[in-house]
Each structure stands twice: as structure tokens, then as C-alpha cells.
């Protein structure tokens, strides 16, 4: 995660390592690779939720999310977590620089 402070805002970029399978692809043996994608994304600033979003299977593998937050201070803690359609969650932390 990279979070950079601007004038009154913070730009955040996060790389989320995920297969993001569309459910449309087949493996070498012709079997359909099951649908596997990130469904929900939550961003928290110092523990307080600032973004909640839904993601579809149309998003690429290992997606990069970037967003702009109003405000933010140097040293503020950011956390981005995601939940996929198989119930697996993951998260990444960062600090505003």
C-alpha cells in the first residue's frame, strides 16, 4: 500500500493479490475453473471505515485499487481488507506518508 498526503487529501494505492477467476475459463484438461473473485473491499482510517465497496468478477487478476481520501494526516493508519466469494478475507496495512 502506498498512501501519499496531498493538499487536504490522501491518495491511496493498494495491490491486492488475488486470482480473480471469472468462472468462464477452462484449465488444460477442459474443466471450468470455478468463479473466485473479490466481492467486498473495506478501507479504514485509524480504525474508522471510510470506504466500503463491491467488486465484480470483471476486475483483472491482482488488481490495483486507487482512491482519494478527504483529509488524512501524516502517520495515520490505513487498513484495506477484502472478502472474496469463497469467504476468504485478507488485508494490508499502511501509514500515510
Amino acid at each position: 500500500m502506498r498512501a501519499t498526503l496531498g493538499a487536504g487529501f490522501t491518495d491511496v494505492r493498494v495491490l491486492m493479490s488475488h486470482a480473480m477467476e471469472t468462472g468462464q475459463r477452462k484449465d488444460a484438461s477442459g474443466k471450468v475453473i470455478p468463479l473466485h473473485f473479490i466481492q467486498n473491499v473495506t478501507a479504514k482510517l485509524n480504525g474508522k471505515t471510510v470506504i466500503e465497496g463491491e467488486v465484480s468478477q470483471a476486475v483483472s487478476r491482482n488488481p490495483v485499487f486507487s482512491f482519494r481520501l478527504k483529509g488524512g494526516q501524516k502517520g495515520d493508519k490505513l487498513e484495506l481488507s477484502w472478502l472474496d466469494n469463497t469467504g476468504v478475507t485478507n488485508k494490508t496495512d499502511g501509514t500515510i506518508a
Binding site: 470506504i51 467488486v55 476486475v59 483483472s60 488488481p63 490495483v64 485499487f65 482512491f67
Partner: peptide, 9 residues
Amino acid sequence: MLKTLMGGA
């Protein structure tokens, strides 16, 4: 406000 950046796009 959630923006996706995709090389594919």
C-alpha cells in the same frame, strides 16, 4: 469513489 486501474483497460 472506488476506482479500478486495470492494464487490460
